[in-house]
Amino acid sequence: MKKFQAIIKFQMDDDFMTLVPPHRTYVNFLLNKGVFDSYAVSMESQTCWITMNTESKEAADQVLVKSPLYKYWTYEIEELFVYDSQHYRLPALQLN
């Protein structure tokens, strides 16, 4: 499995917000399944960043295409060489 970063720009219209609940259901499914590692959205810049685990860039694209919000997106997918976060670290020791 390889790691990819999807950088998504989106444009909103009147119907956009009606598709957010089914999109969030899809995102939660992919997070629970381990396909998405992280998902972040900025309404200020109308940008979304998704870190995902797939076999290829094409497979990552096929995951994104299934989103209800897909028609509002322009995006790039980049393979990551290094991905590190607190999530992948051992928990800090707490001495009693």
Rank of each mutant, 00 (worst) to 15 (best):
F4I: 04
F4V: 04
F4H: 09
F4M: 05
I7W: 03
I8Q: 02
I8F: 03
K9P: 00
K9I: 04
K9G: 01
F10S: 01
F10K: 02
Q11M: 04
Q11N: 09
M12C: 00
M12G: 02
D13G: 05
D14Y: 09
F16L: 02
M17Q: 03
T18P: 00
L19Q: 12
V20T: 11
V20H: 05
V20I: 15
P22K: 06
H23G: 03
H23E: 11
H23F: 10
R24E: 12
T25I: 11
T25P: 00
Y26G: 05
Y26W: 11
Y26R: 09
V27G: 07
V27F: 05
L30N: 12
L30Y: 07
L31Y: 04
L31I: 06
L31T: 01
L31R: 07
N32V: 02
G34W: 11
G34Q: 07
G34I: 09
V35P: 01
D37Q: 15
D37T: 14
D37L: 15
S38Q: 07
S38T: 14
S38M: 08
S38I: 07
Y39N: 11
A40W: 08
A40M: 10
A40C: 10
V41A: 14
S42E: 08
M43Q: 11
M43I: 08
E44H: 07
S45Q: 11
Q46P: 02
T47I: 13
C48R: 04
C48W: 05
I50S: 07
I50P: 03
M52A: 06
N53F: 06
N53K: 12
E55Y: 04
S56K: 06
K57V: 11
A60C: 02
D61F: 14
Q62K: 13
Q62E: 15
Q62N: 14
Q62P: 00
L64Y: 03
L64V: 00
V65D: 01
V65E: 12
S67D: 15
S67M: 08
P68K: 10
L69D: 02
L69V: 05
K71W: 06
K71M: 12
K71T: 10
Y72I: 03
T74N: 06
Y75G: 01
E76D: 15
E76P: 02
I77D: 00
I77P: 01
E78Q: 10
E79Y: 03
F81Q: 07
F81Y: 08
Y83F: 14
Y83V: 12
D84G: 14
S85P: 07
S85M: 10
Q86A: 14
R89D: 15
L90Q: 13
A92W: 04
A92K: 12
L93N: 08
L93F: 09
Q94R: 15
L95S: 08
L95I: 12
L95C: 07
N96A: 14
N96W: 12
